[in-house]
Design a protein around this nucleic acid. Structure first.
Lengths: 128, 128
DNA sequence: CCTTGAGCTTCTAGTCACTGGAAGCTCTAT
DNA sequence: ATAGAGCTTCCAGTGACTAGAAGCTCAAGG
């Protein structure tokens, strides 16, 4: 398989696939013409990576997960630990965004938003 | 005021303040010894920026907001528009994170997390 | 056989908002 | 005189790509 087909089938852009090779997440072989030659197993890995990335795992987490995926003697506890840590990081981010959202929506609601210059949003930002 | 004092009073690290000067958000004058010399108005700007950044506004938004802050003939509608757009971007992010969270917490819950290798998390990532 | 266009290659540089570190100057206190 | 803190500049790195340029390869049509 050339990179284009793998891109179509995995849903990842060719640029991203090349990048994943650069950082050692996949290592396709090469055809005589220099083109990357992907096996089915490479496609599987890339699909795995795509899914893990949409769940927000970092590249380093993905590397770990891929390692566990390929390690038949893994313990599911290891996988769960990675996922749980990521889950709590997501929870932190959500909380942070909700805090922002709360303040910001109050400010937006309190601003009349017309042609006059006085504005509670700017007042808040200015510290007051 | 030297950068250290401004850093303490604004809550921003010196590095960040220098960076904000680099990109033209503040332009402190200079003392004879080459040190940056901040006025009260610079401190105000930096405090404004710090607050806007904690509300998640991008640097470019901050630049716009700072411009509006200093423009006495601004219309509050302009400020409100920037804030509203940012608010809806935050809402998008929250939704995205909540989607991730939902999937991930199901997966985590379904993984027994012991010393056996079989794992629904990996199964999901592998496209199963 | 030639050309056209799509697809592939590598490489560099840009994104965003800082942050770390090195090398070196200035100031204050002892 | 010296030690140490604080200031200066500049370069490089972060994460995860992404844009774009220059150039090679391949398949189809005339």
């Amino acid at each position: 398989m050339n990179i284009g087909e793998v891109a179509d089938r995995s849903g990842l852009p060719p640029k991203t696939i090349r990048y994943y090779e650069d950082i050692g997440l996949v290592c396709p072989s090469r055809s005589a013409n220099g083109y990357r030659a992907f096996r089915e197993s490479d496609l599987h890995k890339l699909t795995f990576l795509g899914r893990a990335r949409t769940l927000g795992f970092s590249i380093e987490d993905c590397r770990t997960l891929l390692g566990l995926y390929e390690d038949e003697s893994r313990e599911s506890a290891q996988v769960k630990a990675v996922a749980q840590e990521h889950l709590s990081a997501i929870d932190d981010k959500i909380r942070q965004l909700q805090d922002m959202r709360a303040t910001l929506s109050e400010l937006v609601a309190s601003c009349h938003g017309d042609d006059r210059p006085d504005c509670p949003i700017l007042q808040d930002l200015a510290g007051g």
